[in-house]
Nucleic acid binder design. Structure first.
Length: 139
DNA sequence: GCCAACGTTGGC
DNA sequence: GCCAACGTTGGC
């Protein structure tokens, strides 16, 4: 069976949980998501999928690449049984962070869910967008 | 099942 | 700290 890799973007406020926190932990549980669209994206994740790690509020930029290390399971912080969590691990830091400003200014990225559904904390990234951002990052 | 009120996210 | 966008809740 062919494994098709998908790409995602996950937002985190760096003063709550930053890229450096993920690196020092080695692996992070992504829980506490209480939005159905975000949850459905998490349930669609497969081990090895690429994840852009985005800092919201402070920095407001994509800072690193992570990958899905454990597929959706029951969110341990939820008692209703409705919500899911995944686990991710860091792959590498981007040589140059890609800012929201850059993304907004780039016609090739104007349709990203990050822009069109800006309040969504877990969004899908198209392969072309993934490659384009890697180029902007000098990676 | 509609929709107004409310709460939260997140850029600025 | 403000406020726009928008998801969720709850009254009817």
């Amino acid at each position: 069976m062919t494994k098709i890799k998908s790409f995602w973007l996950m937002k985190s406020e760096p003063d709550v949980y930053s890229w450096d926190d993920l690196v020092s932990e080695g692996e992070g549980t992504w829980d506490g998501v209480r939005n159905y669209t975000a949850r459905n994206n998490m349930r669609a994740m497969r081990t090895g999928d690429g994840v852009f790690f985005y800092h919201s509020n402070i920095g407001v930029e994509i800072v690193g690449i992570a990958e899905v290390s454990e597929e959706a399971f029951q969110d341990p912080s939820d008692e209703t049984g409705r919500w899911s969590a995944v686990r991710v691990k860091p792959v590498r830091k981007l040589p140059r962070p890609v800012t929201l400003k850059q993304i907004k200014a780039d016609p090739a990225l104007a349709d990203m869910d990050l822009i069109t559904k800006f309040r969504l904390s877990v969004s899908a990234v198209k392969p072309a967008e993934w490659d384009h951002i890697l180029k902007l990052a000098g990676s």
